[in-house]
């Protein structure tokens, strides 16, 4: 059975690019439009990994991760944060919230696949 990745981003084009790349590689992809939507979808069905943007309306990436890690179903799911910023304080905040890694925009489709493969094995 294919592994499922949840992509959380308020940009439809970024979500679509991630979904197309991962689906072509054999992953199932669920899309969420912001942190609130991501939280609802991550708790509604099991996912194997999550890629989330940081700057989003309603609930940003860090808020989403913190909220998800409060739930038993949200523990142990690898989460990678997408950001245009690679500042150390942002990374430290993401780690504190419970993220496993980060990826800077812009990124290539090859880089995205390499990261997902590294996270999911």
């Amino acid at each position: 059975m294919s592994k499922t990745v949840l992509t959380v981003d308020d940009s439809p084009s970024i979500r679509r690019m991630i979904a197309m790349t991962l689906e072509e590689a054999g992953y199932a992809v669920i899309e969420a439009v912001d942190g609130q939507d991501g939280l609802a979808k991550a708790l509604a069905q099991p996912v194997d990994a999550i890629i989330t943007d940081q700057n989003m309306p309603n609930l940003d990436g860090l808020g989403f991760i913190r909220a998800l890690r409060q739930h038993p179903a949200g523990k142990g799911v690898p989460i990678v944060v997408l950001s245009t910023d690679s500042a150390e304080d942002l990374k430290a905040q993401a780690r504190e919230a419970g993220a496993l890694g980060w990826m800077v925009k812009p990124f290539t489709q090859d880089k995205l696949l390499a990261v997902i493969k590294k996270v999911l094995g």
Partner: peptide, 23 residues
Amino acid sequence: NQVFRDLHTVKGSGAMFGFTDLA
């Protein structure tokens, strides 16, 4: 905050899709 997010998305998505001058 809304203006900032809109700009951030234009920049991030623009860079992702090769519009480097825009970004």
